[in-house]
């Protein structure tokens, strides 16, 4: 093939690739842009001080935060503990089965989780629309991610540290607590960040488990529906008036802001860990 044709083909290929990159960047900008454009007239402090009953977002924001807190309390410890077992304690074969189970759980559609949670918790156990049912459903969805990141974080701790601790005759639990966990903490924390990012954006598992309420969340775990941000986007987007669309978009903007904060937190954790690791090897 003549060189000129080869060069032309090269240019064509990389132009297509650049176009593809543009197609990845553009939708994110377009979505955020359209949310901002719709939400512009209602963006303001009023969103934080009034509830969805009067086109504010206070109850939805608080509800989303309460759900996130629930995830941290429930799925956090369980997922981290399970990850520790898989990385440090499990016999190889058993770990591999447990890992497969956890990864398969991650593949279950969230609506299936929501459906079962609704049938069992809300109906059969008579919890009604309840905060705890929502937290359990969401926890089931994010658990595999926490397990996975914890396991990866521990695996990245050099084996020499384990051998050194072993040579000193440290009990396993002490080795874990004093030697292995500290360097793994950034990895574990970024797993929790991923879990929170998923929780902030989920709708399907919550629709029929926590329901929705125009009031601020209460400490009641049972029988009390709770409002959350994604529901506002979903419901208001299908309502007819412009003002309802604006509130939907505003809820979307709040979610994106929370998301950006989580992404920034994740990056800060990773960066700090990298600096720390560099100091340790220096």
């Amino acid at each position: 093939m003549p060189p000129m044709l080869r060069r032309a083909r090269d240019t064509l290929f990389w132009s297509l690739c650049a176009g593809a990159l543009l197609l990845v960047v553009a939708p994110a900008l377009a979505i955020i842009g359209s949310l901002l454009q719709q939400a512009w007239p209602v963006l303001g402090l009023r969103l934080l001080t009034t509830t969805t009953a009067v086109n504010g977002l206070q109850n939805a924001i608080l509800g989303t935060l309460v759900l996130c807190l629930g995830i941290l309390i429930l799925a956090g410890p369980v997922g981290i503990a399970a990850g520790i077992y898989l990385a440090e304690f499990g016999p190889r074969r058993r770990s591999s089965w447990l890992r497969l189970g956890s990864e398969t759980l991650a593949g279950i559609p969230s609506i299936v989780v929501g459906y079962v949670a609704y049938l069992v918790l809300d109906e059969e156990m008579h919890w009604g629309y309840s905060l705890l049912a929502g937290i359990l459903a969401l926890s089931t969805i994010v658990l595999p991610y926490i397990v996975k990141t914890t396991e990866i974080a521990l695996r990245q701790v050099p084996t020499t540290l384990r051998e050194g601790a072993r040579a000193l005759g440290l009990p396993r639990v002490t080795t874990l607590r004093r030697v292995l966990l500290p360097p793994a903490i950034p990895g574990i924390a970024s797993g929790l960040v991923v879990a929170l990012a998923i929780s902030v954006g989920e709708t399907a598992p919550l629709l029929y488990t926590v329901g929705f309420s125009d009031r601020n969340p209460t400490p009641d775990l049972f029988q009390h529906p709770v409002g959350y941000l994604t529901y506002v986007v979903f419901l208001n987007a299908t309502l007819p008036t412009r003002q309802e669309h604006e509130v939907a978009a505003a809820a979307g903007v709040v979610i994106v802001v929370l998301l950006l904060a989580l992404i920034a937190t994740g990056r800060a954790i990773v960066r700090r860990a990298a600096r720390h690791a560099a100091q340790m090897t220096a």
């Binding site: 994110a28 359209s34 954006g201 994604t230 986007v233």
Partner: peptide, 12 residues
């Protein structure tokens, strides 16, 4: 961002 933007925002 694309991974994190909620499903309902895509729908909107």
């Amino acid at each position: 961002l694309l991974a994190g933007i909620p499903s309902v925002a895509y729908g909107f």
